[in-house]
Design a protein around this nucleic acid. Structure first.
Lengths: 212, 212
DNA sequence: TAACTAACGTACTGGTTCGTACATTAGTGG
DNA sequence: CCACTAATGTACGAACCAGTACGTTAGTTA
């Protein structure tokens, strides 16, 4: 069986990045081992330094790739045909599903925050532009529509609403271990999935609908 | 100046624990260095092993101590004299203040979750009992009062409400770095503190007040 | 005050881990 | 088909780091 050419720079690079993403998400930056990443690829440690330069640059590349994947996924939401309330519910639900489906991304973000965002802060501007646009801009439009129809409060800011939605979704996945140990409730139990999804949408909609 | 006895087991132990808590919160488990902790105490590395046994046990002790401090602080909330809505607001605000005042605790919890709660899961039951009681039990009572007075929805669960409040408070502190880098907004800017505090209380109250 | 033990310090080790020097092969342009 | 370069592999080193062997001193008790 011929699995392709013996030399394929793009493929080797991609494979390293994929394995590294998993390893960093799994072990954290300091906990991740370059040798372990190398062992789990079809190539050697030498190639990591050849393509990425070092452990830290590899980590930054993995973080960047994770954000890029997310950005791509977020652009697929279509709520133009929905009323403001239904549109907000949909955005909350899509965000919810999205976080549940990407625990590794949430772990990488947590890890980066443990490092006080020092790596993402050093990323070139070009890699961050566009990361915010899709979800928040959409939220802003819907909020304005809702306000125009007298459905939503005037003082609600799109970025704040996005923050509240993210907080709920991220916490449920990121903090499920300590929460489970202390309170004895599994936040990602499939049987409770719909309950939390509905709760989030209810909470956001009721906040927006309430008088100031 | 006589700073006390040259030998004081309790003091030495306490000092190690204090420095270790700061170092683990700062660097994470794998990133923390036993030598560095020792260097920042008035004693030596030998004493860490003498009193705690090893790096992992020291980390567990630091985590346990952090939770103990929190538990003590949470028991000081008094809302018996308030109506259900005001009581809920007060709990949300106290939790908010509390998280803002203890970023190191939040960091330790994040770190423990990166490790999938493996250490907290192995803690003796006795150390976890009582950790949940104060805040959530109180919430349960208020919810029931509010329900009795027809103010709150029937389907609201105390632990879920606690989760939603925690999520908001934790996210704002824990994820402020990546959020700030991507959206250009500092979530812990003192000028926005009151805004977020009010927003959280509004959100929880409106969720509870809305019809199902 | 002598014997004893809890508390503490020094110096070291064995394994780990990031990174690199050096060698080699596959593909490619002339 | 021959030189040249991009891509890859091997073997190793130097620093780091958790943990410990061994020795010492302070306080305590008989």
């Amino acid at each position: 069986m011929d699995t392709g050419r013996r030399r394929d720079a793009a493929r080797t690079r991609a494979e390293i990045l994929e394995v590294a993403s998993a390893e960093f998400a799994d072990q954290g930056y300091a906990g991740a081992r370059v040798d372990e990443i190398a062992a789990r690829t079809r190539t050697t440690k030498r190639m990591i330094y050849y393509y990425f330069g070092g452990k830290e640059q590899l980590y930054v590349a993995a973080l960047q790739a994770a954000y890029a994947r997310i950005r791509a996924a977020e652009q697929e939401v279509d709520v133009a045909h929905l009323g403001p309330v239904a549109a907000i519910r949909r955005i909350a639900e899509v965000t919810f599903d999205h976080h549940e489906a990407n625990p590794d991304f949430i772990r990488l973000v947590s890890i980066e925050n443990i490092h006080r965002g020092e790596h993402i802060a050093r990323m070139p501007e070009a890699d961050l532009v566009g990361l915010n646009t899709p979800a928040v801009d959409l939220l802003g439009e819907i909020l304005e529509r809702g306000r125009g129809q007298g459905l939503f409060r005037a003082g609600a800011d799109a970025l704040d609403v996005h923050m509240a939605i993210s907080a709920f979704c991220v916490f449920r996945v990121a903090n499920r271990h300590t929460f489970g140990a202390i309170f004895g409730r599994d936040l990602v139990d499939p049987d409770r999935r719909l309950h939390y999804r509905t709760m989030l949408a209810d909470m956001i909609v009721s906040y927006l609908s309430a008088a100031e």
